[in-house]
C-alpha cells in the first residue's frame, strides 16, 4: 500500500469508501426490507384448545403467520387441505372475520372441488367464506388483497403456483404480518416449497379416535384426525415429533391425544423427505 504513489492511494481509499457506503446502503435496504418477526403475544395467539398444542405450536402458528401444509403422501392430500381449513377456522374463531379461499383456476387438485357443506365442519358457513379462482400471478395477487383487506381472519391458498418467486412470497408474508391475518398455504404433494413460510407442517390422515368399532356411529368425517409433524419452524428448532390431533367441529378446537399414537405406521419424515429432496434437486 505504501509503495503506491500518493494520488493513487487516495483514489483507492476513495473507491473503498464508496464501496463501503454502497454496502452500508444495501445493508440498510435489507434491514428495511426485513419482515418483522412473529409475535406470539397473548393477543396474537390463535389458541388451539389444548395447552400442549398451544405450547408446541404457538411460536409459529399465530396471527400474521404464513403456514404451509403439505401432504405426507398423495393420498393424504384431502387431509392436509382439511388441516389448513381447520387452522383457518381456528383463526376465524380467535379473531373473527372472513376467510378467503384462493383456488387455482381449473380446480386446485384432482380430487374434486371444495364442498360448501363439507366446509361447514370447519366453522366456515357461507357468511364466513369467500372463494376465488385465479391462475398464476392473479392468484397470488388475490391472496395479497385478501391478506390486506380489513376484517379478514385468514387466507387459504389451494394448490397455487408450482413455481414461486421469492419476492412474491415475501410480499405475501409482509401483508400477513401487517394485517394479522394468517396465510394457510395448502400445497400439493409435489409443489415447490413456500420458502419464507414461518412453519411447515407435514400432514397425514390418522384413524378416527373411536378404537372400538362397537362405539359407532362416531360421525366419520365430522371429527377428522391428523398426524401432524412440524418440519420447519422459523427462528427456532422445530419439535420433531408426530402429533396426533383431532378436530372438534362443534367447539372448533383441536384435541391432542397421545394415546392415539399409532406405531404401526412409519414415522412421517421417512415418507415425506424423499419427495421434498426430489423437488429440491429438480
Amino acid at each position: 500500500m505504501s509503495a503506491l504513489p500518493g494520488a493513487h492511494a487516495d483514489l483507492l481509499a476513495a473507491a473503498k469508501g464508496a464501496r463501503k457506503a454502497r454496502a452500508r446502503r444495501a445493508l440498510a435496504a435489507i434491514a428495511a426490507d426485513a419482515i418483522a418477526p412473529l409475535s406470539a403475544a397473548a393477543d396474537r395467539r390463535l389458541g388451539f384448545g389444548d395447552p400442549r398444542l398451544d405450547e408446541a405450536w404457538s411460536q409459529a402458528l399465530c396471527a400474521g403467520a404464513v403456514i404451509e401444509t403439505r401432504p405426507a403422501a398423495y393420498d393424504d392430500l384431502a387431509a392436509s387441505v382439511g388441516f389448513a381449513f381447520a387452522l383457518a377456522g381456528r383463526a376465524r374463531k380467535a379473531r373473527g372475520g372472513l376467510i378467503l379461499a384462493v383456488e387455482r383456476q381449473g380446480g386446485a387438485f384432482d380430487i374434486g372441488g371444495l364442498d360448501g357443506a363439507g366446509l361447514r365442519s370447519f366453522g366456515l358457513d357461507p357468511a364466513a367464506l369467500m372463494i376465488v379462482r385465479a391462475r398464476g400471478e392473479e392468484a397470488l395477487w388475490a391472496c395479497a388483497q385478501g391478506l390486506r383487506a380489513p376484517g379478514l381472519a385468514g387466507v387459504v391458498a389451494l394448490g397455487l403456483a408450482e413455481q414461486l418467486d421469492l419476492s412474491a412470497m415475501r410480499r405475501l408474508q409482509r401483508a400477513a404480518r401487517e394485517s394479522g391475518a394468517i396465510l394457510a398455504w395448502a400445497a400439493g404433494p409435489r409443489a415447490a416449497l413456500f420458502a419464507p413460510a414461518d412453519a411447515r407442517l407435514c400432514v397425514a390422515a390418522a384413524p378416527c379416535r373411536a378404537a372400538d368399532p362397537a362405539a359407532l356411529p362416531v360421525l366419520l368425517g365430522a371429527r377428522p384426525s391428523w398426524r401432524v409433524r412440524m418440519t420447519r419452524l422459523r427462528a427456532a428448532a422445530p419439535v420433531f415429533e408426530d402429533l396426533l390431533v383431532e378436530w372438534d367441529h362443534e367447539t372448533l378446537c383441536f384435541r391432542l391425544d397421545a394415546a392415539l399414537a399409532d406405531r404401526s405406521r412409519p414415522p412421517l419424515d421417512a415418507r415425506a423427505r424423499p419427495s421434498l429432496h426430489r423437488r429440491q434437486r429438480a
Binding site: G113, G116, R120
Partner: peptide
C-alpha cells in the same frame, strides 16, 4: 337442513 354437518357430515372435497 341437508347441509347441517352436525346431522350429516359431508366430505371436504366432492367430485364433479
Amino acid at each position: 337442513a341437508p347441509g347441517d354437518p352436525l346431522l350429516r357430515p359431508r366430505p371436504l372435497f366432492l367430485l364433479a
